[in-house]
């Protein structure tokens, strides 16, 4: 009976310890932060332009499924603001795009000894949908123009890969824990975002001058995202293999 009492007490201590520090299979939460982005223009005729990386808000809701050996899966629905600013002589062009990102992150958590701090790596292919946005344009020969983005001026969809790193820190909160995290990474778009109409020039050009030309080459997005996350674990605990009764009783 005394042996059983020791075993139960030991198990209870482990339960408290597991609730505070051991991750559970599932967690969910949200992230907020900033996306600092730009475009990659492949045509040489745009080499004259200076690129100014533009900062926009970013936020998401996510779930995380962890395995005992570090690998995890993190589906996520995110709002990412994308933007760029291009300048050449008197020309000042600014584009802002509001996007919905559907991501499937693959994570790898590193477990460090004697600390709750857990760094991780993430790679997340994303499907992106443009929701809207605007372009503003200023130049000497054109009155300032502001134009909402439409299907004629930006591609509806994009496919991107996000790769980054971060760290998690579980904080005890009553009987459970809150997982705080900080993450930074780079996102690269793969699909062309100029439209067919922009390439052909068969559309209404709001800033038409003698030197505006149909779009040349490719325009693809890129950006750095830095976000702060808050999550709550739930579901079954990832419990370490318990020592056998014989080992408990050994000297």
């Amino acid at each position: 009976m005394m042996v059983a009492a020791v075993v139960v007490c030991h198990a209870q201590d482990e339960d408290v310890e597991a609730a505070e520090y051991e991750p559970r299979y599932l967690s969910a939460g949200f992230r907020v932060g900033s996306s600092v982005g730009d475009v990659r223009l492949s045509a040489e005729c745009y080499d004259e332009y200076d690129h100014v990386w533009a900062a926009r808000p970013a936020g998401s809701v996510w779930m995380h499924y962890r395995t005992p050996f570090g690998l995890g899966l993190r589906p996520e629905v995110a709002y990412i603001g994308r933007g760029t600013r291009l300048q050449w002589a008197d020309v000042d062009y600014t584009m802002t795009v509001h996007t919905l990102n559907i991501r499937l992150g693959i994570t790898w958590n590193f477990k460090l000894k004697n600390t709750k701090f857990s760094p991780y790596l993430i790679a997340a292919p994303s499907w992106l949908i443009a929701l809207g946005g605007k372009v503003t344009y200023k130049a000497l020969d054109v009155e300032e123009v502001e134009m909402p983005l439409t299907t004629a001026s930006v591609a509806k969809q994009d496919v991107r890969l996000f790769a980054g790193a971060g760290f998690e820190m579980p904080i005890a909160a009553g009987n459970t824990a809150v997982i705080l995290s900080l993450e930074a990474g780079y996102a690269m778009g793969f699909l062309e975002t100029f439209t067919a109409l922009e390439h052909s020039g068969e559309l209404t050009v709001l800033n038409r001058t003698l030197d505006t030309r149909p779009a040349a080459g490719d325009r693809k997005w890129q950006g750095i995202e830095v976000t702060f996350g808050v999550g709550m674990p739930f579901g079954p605990k990832i419990v370490k293999k318990r020592p056998s009764l014989k080992k408990i009783l050994e000297n």
Partner: peptide, 16 residues
């Protein structure tokens, strides 16, 4: 959200 981006026939093109 798929239907949020409006149809249009206007754009702003970069001078070269």
């Amino acid at each position: 959200m798929c239907g949020c981006l409006k149809e249009g026939d206007e754009s702003i093109l970069l001078p070269v």
